[in-house]
Design a binder for these strands. Structure first.
Length: 280
DNA sequence: GGTACTGAGAGAAGAGTAAC
DNA sequence: GTTACTCTTCTCTCAGTACC
């Protein structure tokens, strides 16, 4: 037996000026998350142990199935992808000092830990050659289960950053490498994360199945992304929605939606997500 | 009073550095 | 280039606090 809330994307809700929003500022994009109700009935399910919860109103003991554990993994994955998008938006603007690198293996690499170790060695060599660089690393399994690594690199000095393909290839030494400039995009984080976020609302069944399977390759306690020390972390600011509107000069959001959370078709809460171009 | 939010703690894993 | 060590960061979970 299982318990599921239904979430649904609906037309963007109108938010009163006094409602509190959590706001994330970055050079190009301002993100706001507004939760309609702080109190609702979702918390009547209390987690007990790794694989079960209890309905606090009925005392019913509910075990998670493997599929539900996968859903939990997907939820963590989605949260990590959201964090990653904000970190990218805060640190990368599509400047000439920034590069997007992909590192692959010529043979199959199915071990997450070995791939992590290989990147660690690669970065120590890279850092020796380019001491002013910082990175965000994303380890991703291919459909075959073989790992490859995406790396966003920036030169802190903001100088035009250039790495020869042969140099990069010899530093990596495990297979093919690709190096690209970042495409200009005001919301580069969303552009970038769209490639990895496995919990999008795609209707393509085969794609969803493939992506669901890929999440299975991640071990428990996996780190979807890692950053070097010099990468800034976004800190949310809580403000009223009226203050937010003043902050963005009353412009319309460039992207917005509202998600409702329903229990047996009764809406118990809604969360509105908005993005504004940062014109400040 | 009930419940969501937030922060803290534990454990695991990664980053950075120094020594060899 | 490798290894060992320390510090930091991330995931996961829970309990106290603030809010409705």
């Amino acid at each position: 037996m299982s318990k599921e809330f239904q979430t649904k994307k609906v037309p963007t809700a109108v938010i009163p000026d006094d409602k509190l929003s959590k706001v994330y500022l970055s050079p190009n994009i301002i993100e706001a998350v507004t939760v309609d109700k702080r109190s609702c009935n979702i918390r009547k399910f209390k987690r007990v142990g790794k694989n079960a919860c209890v309905n606090m109103s009925t005392g019913e003991y509910i075990e998670f199935s493997k599929n539900e554990n996968l859903q939990s993994k997907q939820a963590h994955f989605k949260k990590a992808a959201n964090d990653l998008r904000r970190i990218i938006n805060l640190n990368f603007i599509g400047d000439c000092s920034e590069k997007f690198i992909t590192l692959t293996y010529c043979n199959r690499m199915e071990d997450y830990n070995n791939a992590s170790e290989d990147f660690k060695k690669f970065w120590s060599l890279f850092k020796y050659r380019y001491p002013n660089c910082e990175y965000i690393r994303i380890l991703e399994p291919q459909e075959s289960g073989s790992w490859h690594i995406h790396v966003l690199i920036k030169d802190k000095t903001k100088k035009n950053f250039y790495v020869k393909h042969e140099v990069l290839s010899s530093l990596w030494g495990h297979g093919k490498v690709w190096i690209k400039n970042l495409p200009f995009s005001e919301n580069f984080g969303a552009y970038f994360c769209a490639q990895f976020n496995s919990t999008d609302n795609s209707n393509e069944e085969s794609k969803a199945i493939q992506k669901g399977k890929r999440i299975d390759y991640y071990p428990s306690n996996f780190k979807f992304y890692t950053c070097s020390k010099g990468i800034e972390k976004p800190k949310p600011i809580v403000m009223s929605h009226g203050e937010l509107k003043r902050l963005v000069n009353y412009q319309e959001p460039c992207y917005a939606y509202t998600n409702t959370i329903a229990d047996n078709d009764v809406v118990v809460n809604s969360i509105t997500f908005e993005q504004y171009l940062n014109a400040v």
